[in-house]
Design a binder for these strands. Structure first.
Lengths: 200, 200
DNA sequence: ACCCTAAAGTTCGATGCTAAACACTACATG
DNA sequence: CATGTAGTGTTTAGCATCGAACTTTAGGGT
C-alpha cells in the first residue's frame, strides 16, 4: 500500500507514507542514502510540521493567528518595556521589513500593539505590547505549554535531557555553517511526506 | 547586549537570543514553564528553520526552488511511474488544490513534470516526472545527503539511534492527537527566536 | 435512459509575502 | 552650516497561496 492504511482496507486514505516506508523508498531510489540520517531528518521535519498545525488550530481558538503570536513572543522576549522596532522584529521573525510594516498595521488595528515614533531618534519607530497583547501572549503560552507537555509525555527525564543536549549540539553545528543567518530566504513552504530533506 | 554578541563588542548584531537566554526569559515572564520542555521545543523549531534556510540556498544553486523540490520528492516517493494527481500532491504537500494547479503550471513550463488527462477516468489528471525532473531530484538528493551528514556529524551511532527513536515516539504522540491531518491549516509562518512554542 | 450526488480540477477574488524603489533622519566631513 | 552617506521604515509591483464558486465526469438509484 502506498500510505498508512496499508492493510486495514479502510477508505484508503491517500495520505502520506509512514516514516519507515519513506526511508525504504529513498533507499531504493537513491542507494547512497543513510537510512538513519534520513529517518532523523524526516521525523524532525514532520514533527515540526504537525506541531505547527496544532498550534495554528489552538491559536485560532484564542482569536489570534500564528503570525500575530510570533510578534507577541518576540516582544515579550525583548523584555520590559516589551518594545522593539519593526526592523528588529523583521530580523527576528525572518521577514522582510515590508512584511512587518503590514503585519504591525493589522496588530495595531487589533489592539495588540502600539506604534509610535521614537522620541530621541525620529527615524526609528517603536512597536510596543499593549496590555491586551500581553494577556493574549499569556493565554497562548499556557495553551502551548500544555500541548508541549503532552507531546513529551512519553519521554522520561533522562531522555529529555539527552534530547535537549543532542538538539543543541546539532543547532550549534548548523549555525556554524550559517554565519549569523538572521533569516532571510526562508521559503518555508510546506513539506508533508517529503520532509525527508527539505524543511529539515 | 540583547543577544548573542554579549561581550565581544562586535558590531552588536541584534540577532536572536541564544536558546538558553530565551528559556531564561520565559521562566521570568511565565514561571510555570518547564525549562527543559521549552529548551527542546525551541531547539527543535530553530533547528528546523535553519536547515530549511540552508536547503533553500543550496537548491537555488541547482536552479530549483524549495517548492519545486517538494513536488519532485512527492513524485519520487510515489514510486514508478512517478505519477500522481494534483489533488494527491496537494494533500501530501499540505497545499490547496488551487495552489497545486499553479505550481504544476510552472513546473510543466520548466520541463520538470508533464500534465495529462487520465485515459480511463477523464476527471483525473496525471502529473508525471520527466527525465529532467528526476535528474534534478537526484542532484538535490545528493546535496541534501551531504548537508544532513554534516549536521549530524558530531553525533555517535548510539546517539543517532536514540534520537531517531525519541523523535519517532514524539511523532506518534502528535499524530494521535491529530487524527490524520493530511495537513491543511498549515500557516507555516516563520518564527525565529520565538519558536519557543509556535512552529514547534 | 435520467437525475442526483460525489469527486476532481480549475478559475476567481482577496490576502500576505518578497524585492526593489522611495522618503526621511542622523551623523560625519569639509 | 552644507553635503554625502548610512540606516530606518514605508510604498509599490508582482507572485504564491487560500477559500469559495464553478465545470466536468463518474457512479448510483429509479
Amino acid at each position: 500500500m502506498t500510505s498508512t492504511s496499508g492493510d486495514a482496507a479502510g477508505p484508503a486514505l491517500p495520505a502520506e507514507p509512514a516514516i519507515d516506508e519513506q526511508v525504504a523508498i529513498y533507499q531504493r531510489e537513491f542507494p547512497e542514502v543513510d537510512p538513519q540520517v534520513e529517518t532523523i531528518v524526516s521525523a524532525l521535519s514532520r514533527l515540526n510540521r504537525r506541531m505547527h498545525v496544532a498550534y495554528s488550530r489552538q491559536l485560532a481558538a484564542l482569536g489570534i493567528t500564528n503570525a500575530e503570536w510570533e510578534v507577541l513572543k518576540a516582544l515579550v522576549l525583548a523584555g520590559k518595556p516589551y518594545r522593539l522596532g519593526p526592523g528588529d522584529l523583521a530580523k527576528r521573525l525572518g521577514l522582510t521589513p515590508a512584511a512587518m510594516t503590514h503585519r504591525v498595521d493589522r496588530m495595531v488595528g487589533d489592539g495588540l500593539v502600539t506604534r509610535a515614533r521614537d522620541e530621541t531618534n525620529r527615524v526609528r519607530v517603536n512597536i510596543e505590547l499593549t496590555g491586551e497583547g500581553r494577556t493574549k501572549w499569556l493565554d497562548a503560552m499556557r495553551m502551548a505549554a500544555t500541548f508541549e507537555a503532552d507531546v513529551l509525555q512519553d519521554l522520561g527525564g533522562d531522555e529529555r535531557g539527552t534530547l535537549a543536549g543532542i538538539l543543541t549540539r546539532m543547532l550549534v553545528r548548523v549555525e556554524s555553517d550559517q554565519p549569523d543567518a538572521g533569516g532571510r530566504l526562508v521559503d518555508l513552504d510546506q513539506d508533508d511526506q517529503s520532509e525527508g530533506t527539505t524543511s529539515g
